[in-house]
Design a protein around this nucleic acid. Sequence first.
DNA 1: ATTCCCAATTGATCTCGGTCAAAGTACCAG
DNA 2: CTGGTACTTTGACCGAGATCAATTGGGAAT
Lengths: 247, 247
Amino acid sequence: MTLKALYEHTNCEECPIRHRAVCAHCEKDELEALEKIKYYRSFEAGQTIIWSGDPMNFVGSVVSGIASLTQTMEDGRTQMVGLLLPSDFVGRPGRETAPYDVQATTDVVMCCFRKKPFEEMMASTPHIAHRLLQMTLDELDAAREWMLVLGRKTAREKIASLLSIIARRDASVNKTGITGPIVFDLPLTREAMADYLGLTLETVSRQISALKKDTVITLEGKRHVTIPDMGRLMEEAGDDADGGFLV
Amino acid sequence: MTLKALYEHTNCEECPIRHRAVCAHCEKDELEALEKIKYYRSFEAGQTIIWSGDPMNFVGSVVSGIASLTQTMEDGRTQMVGLLLPSDFVGRPGRETAPYDVQATTDVVMCCFRKKPFEEMMASTPHIAHRLLQMTLDELDAAREWMLVLGRKTAREKIASLLSIIARRDASVNKTGITGPIVFDLPLTREAMADYLGLTLETVSRQISALKKDTVITLEGKRHVTIPDMGRLMEEAGDDADGGFLV
DNA sequence: ATTCCCAATTGATCTCGGTCAAAGTACCAG
DNA sequence: CTGGTACTTTGACCGAGATCAATTGGGAAT
């Protein structure tokens, strides 16, 4: 159970986590070394994993739980700039300090490597460097996709976009494909959703109620979501039914 | 005159462009090969350099002029997701197609390399791969910084943020430092600014007028800007006077 | 059960920025 | 000088989403 996909594959049967990061199970020769320097860290919901501006001496990936990257202005306005789901990579090889806060949204377990040995490993393993570039490009695409959401979409479209992303990500986990209804639990509070979408929590709540009334989604309790028709949701999100990757 | 900074330095006296990309003047041994495969392309203002979704068979950097990365929804709403100033790198090693439109905002000259040989060069030159990762991380930081602008800042703060970025970038070009007044020409129309900031052009115009009235900036004509006090502008932008890199 | 606490919903009102419309300005070609 | 075009400014009005405030709902602990 460590990290993968610094190699080409996107799944490793041996690992309980779907990793998009680095996995030591495959390509044993080069990556066995990673096994030796890995360690686990646990965080409680609400805890700050890394403070913006602090020195950051490890890289790693999320094993379980949800973490978020957030930026905060002096007056308290906050914007979430990324969502870290299990298998997502955290860290910036070659950088000293963290550029944003990383917070545990739920209880989180991370698999970490001290940065120094990881960077040495990177230097001697071109595949890892290459894979890391690809992962960073993915994140960049996701961030830019989200700029469109933040800058130009309506509140309703924003909610639909977020649900769509979580649903798609979830579907890929369960290998369910995207036909038929999709069911999942929202991993975020209304407030966290608001911070991600550049809205207030009241607006988030209202729009979710509206989508429910219009049967775009079904809710059981506050968090358990059913999406009867994924295509419908993506129309609501203003997506042309294929774009919209993100996180 | 080519590209640099796949190496450590951030400036090369021989080159008329400040490059943050790849420059063949330094580290001649490895990079001379780049000289052989480089070529120039010119574009007129308004021209689309690359269409979203099209195959992209080159990488390169802007030599002169301004280009923009934009995403457009079916109904025409557009969001600029990046601004390319001289020396900025364009391209995605390892990716087949372009994820957004690249448009020439002014007349643009680019220095290009066919992707295939560039990627081969990358594979055999770890420094280049490393530098490319660092550049991509910079872009990622910039994109996430901009997410805060788009999601949480007021119209006035957005304008101030944009001016601040252009001013800072411009100051670094002229090695002027950031003391004393800063003078530059806006390289964007009001509409382009609006697309970058997630506003309408009318709001952009109004807020610029307001900043002018409050003597945060001075305007001669429509485009020539003087910033008497950079600190003041950054306060207006809501920045804590050091963050806010971008572009 | 009762209480407490926190997340979420819902309502009433306000406001910033969008929309629609009309001028104003600079630049170019003839 | 004149007309045309593209960019910009300014005004009047409107509405989506923010703000303020009250209420509801659902666990967990007592």
